[in-house]
């Protein structure tokens, strides 16, 4: 294979990664890393460097639209970034202390459990009362968004803010430790604990993942793991896909996004368990 077909093929695959990532609030690393290593036989370090680029591109490319359309709850996102960024630094420092295989198994199990809980969310009464949360009141996190699929404004209250903050610290730490998978933990945390509507959860996760990734991007860049010929088609493809996805999400139903997310979460969980056991 020559470089030009590599660049073109990688670009189109990354459009799909950007599309999926922007709809689900994850970085697209779960598509980009296996494709680069298994299909194109690119070195794993360059593949992870490219996945960092993919996360930032997905985040910024789609967030421009989600923020403007008020699908992202920026206050929730910015507050939780306190925990994700600190968690990411902690993760980078304790990386040598814990066995990666054990981590993969632990988070594979956590993600599988989250997938089951999120699937049960289909049958949850949407109007069941949300527990009062003083911190969410004080920080004015409660919000509303206009749902184009349902053609009505949906008001929602945020709860369990402290627990959510703790989960985000863990999510940040995982992304610092394993390099991937932070969005996969952020969305269940916002959906299950903080009770944000599904689309708000993915749009807010999408908003946050760029910052968590940017915190570690400097390291990868300095180590020379961001190769221009790998990263250029990844960045361009993912950006195009993310902008496309951001046009679609407002019109998709919360239930559909939930189903899609559960499926992808199960795939990531299997991928992690496999890495832990193999």
């Amino acid at each position: 294979m020559n470089m030009s077909s590599f660049v073109v093929e990688l670009f189109f695959i990354c459009v799909v990664a950007g599309l999926a990532g922007s709809l689900l609030g994850i970085g697209g690393g779960i598509i980009v890393v296996p494709v680069l290593t298994l299909v194109f036989h690119v070195d794993i370090r360059l593949a992870i460097g490219a996945s960092i680029i993919s996360v930032i591109a997905t985040s910024s490319g789609a967030a421009a639209a989600y923020v403007k359309e008020h699908l992202t709850n920026m206050r929730v996102g910015m507050f939780l970034e306190v925990a994700t960024t600190t968690g990411a630094i902690t993760g980078a420092y304790v990386a040598g202390l814990v066995s990666q295989k054990v981590l993969y198994v632990v988070f594979g199990v956590i993600l599988a459990y989250s997938a089951v809980q999120m699937f049960r969310g289909h049958f949850r009464d949407i109007d069941r009362p949300v527990p009062k949360d003083a911190l969410a009141d004080r920080l004015q996190l409660h919000d509303a968004y206009f749902d184009e699929a349902e053609e009505r404004e949906i008001r929602y209250k945020v709860t369990h803010t402290k627990f959510g903050l703790f989960l985000m610290y863990i999510a940040g730490m995982v992304s610092g430790l394993l390099g991937i998978g932070s969005g996969a933990l952020k969305v269940p945390a916002m959906d299950l604990a903080m009770r944000l509507p599904m689309k708000v959860s993915t749009a807010t996760s999408n908003f946050m993942i760029g910052v968590t990734a940017a915190a570690s991007a400097g390291v990868y860049f300095a180590r020379g793991e961001i190769d221009p010929f790998v990263a250029a088609p990844v960045a361009a493809g993912v950006l195009v896909g993310a902008v496309g996805g951001s046009r679609m999400l407002p019109r998709l139903k919360n239930g559909f996004i939930r189903t899609l997310f559960v499926v992808v979460l199960l795939i990531i969980s299997i991928e992690m368990l496999y890495k832990g056991v193999a």
């Binding site: 470089m3 036989h41 070195d43 020379g224 793991e225 961001i226 190769d227 221009p228």
Partner: peptide
């Protein structure tokens, strides 16, 4: 050309 460029552990660029 891709093999030389991309199969190294860190980029020459």
């Amino acid at each position: 050309a891709i093999n030389k460029a991309l199969l190294t552990k860190s980029s020459n660029y």
